[in-house]
Simulated scan of single mutants.
Amino acid sequence: MKGLITLWLSLTIFLTGGMPEMTSHPSDHPQPAAAHEIASPPYPKQVEEAWQAIRKEGGYDVIDQNETRYVVIGAGQRPTGGYSLQIDRIENKNGKIIVYVVEKKPAPSALTTQAITYPSLVISLPAHDEAIDVVFVER
């Protein structure tokens, strides 16, 4: 009998993961932000100026223009080709839009252009009042 109870408890723990189901409030988790688009040149004049500065220095800037918010993101100078920036995700968290960016790097054995490059990215979002932050994510 003792063995049967032990077997039943073991199976119950195994099948349920041993943890009670936890519920959370929906506001505890970040919500996906509004759709974005990767913007391509030619950029509006203010966006072009921000891009010229940001791509070499690194960092980001937000430009509001014509019912659109442009987020200009730059990684700064890199020693070779093969680097790029990609959007990992965009979340609306605590009333703030957070853009998570990953810098893709060339593989150690990759053949790359032997020239200084400036990986950068411009995205556009619908106009809104929330602040925007950019977070660089290591992968």
Rank of each mutant, 00 (worst) to 15 (best):
Gln65Arg: 11
Leu15Lys: 13
Ile38Asn: 04
Val62Arg: 08
Arg55Lys: 15
Gly76Lys: 00
Leu15Pro: 05
Glu57Cys: 07
Gly74Asn: 02
Glu67Asp: 14
Thr68Tyr: 00
Glu57Asn: 13
Ser27Glu: 13
Pro20Arg: 13
Ile38Glu: 06
Lys56Gly: 12
Glu49Asn: 09
Trp8Ala: 15
Lys45Val: 15
Ala50Asn: 09
Gly81Val: 01
Pro42Gln: 06
Thr80Ala: 02
Arg78Ile: 05
Arg78Cys: 04
Tyr70Ser: 01
Gly18Lys: 05
Pro42Met: 02
Val47Asp: 01
Asn66Gln: 14
Ser27Ala: 10
Glu37Pro: 01
Gly59Glu: 05
His29Trp: 13
Thr68Val: 12
Gly82Asp: 02
Trp51Tyr: 15
Met19Asn: 13
Gln77Val: 01
Pro44Asn: 10
Pro32Ser: 10
Val62Phe: 05
Ala50Phe: 04
Glu49Thr: 14
Pro42His: 04
Leu15Cys: 12
Ala34Gly: 12
Pro44Trp: 10
Thr12Arg: 09
Trp8Thr: 15
His36Phe: 15
Pro41Ala: 13
Gln77Pro: 00
Glu57Leu: 15
Pro30Arg: 06
Ala33Tyr: 06
Glu21Ser: 11
Met22Trp: 06
Gly17Ile: 04
Gly74Glu: 01
Gly74Lys: 01
Gln46Ile: 09
Ser84Trp: 02
Gly59Asn: 07
Thr6His: 12
Arg55Trp: 04
Ala75Trp: 00
Ala50Asp: 11
Gly74Tyr: 01
Ile54Leu: 09
Gly58Trp: 02
Ala33Trp: 05
Val47Cys: 04
Met22Tyr: 07
Ala33Ile: 06
Pro20Glu: 14
Glu21Thr: 10
Tyr43Gln: 08
Asp28Lys: 11
Glu57Trp: 07
Ile38Gln: 08
Gly82Leu: 00
His36Trp: 15
Ala75Arg: 03
Phe14Val: 06
Tyr60Asp: 09
Tyr83Leu: 01
Ala53Ile: 14
Trp8Tyr: 12
Thr80Phe: 01
Val71Asn: 00
Val62His: 06
Val47Ser: 03
Pro20Ala: 11
Val72Ser: 00
His36Ile: 04
Gln77Ser: 07
Met19Cys: 10
Glu21Asn: 09
Gln77Lys: 12
Gly81Ile: 01
Val62Glu: 06
Gly76Asp: 01
Asp28Pro: 05
Thr16Tyr: 03
Pro26Asn: 08
Asp61Met: 10
Asp28Tyr: 11
Leu9Met: 12
Ala53Asn: 12
Thr12Asn: 10
His29Phe: 13
Leu15Phe: 12
His29Arg: 14
Asp64Val: 11
His25Met: 07
Ile13Glu: 07
Gly81Pro: 03
Ile13His: 08
Tyr60Cys: 06
Gly59Thr: 07
Gly18Arg: 05
Ile63His: 04
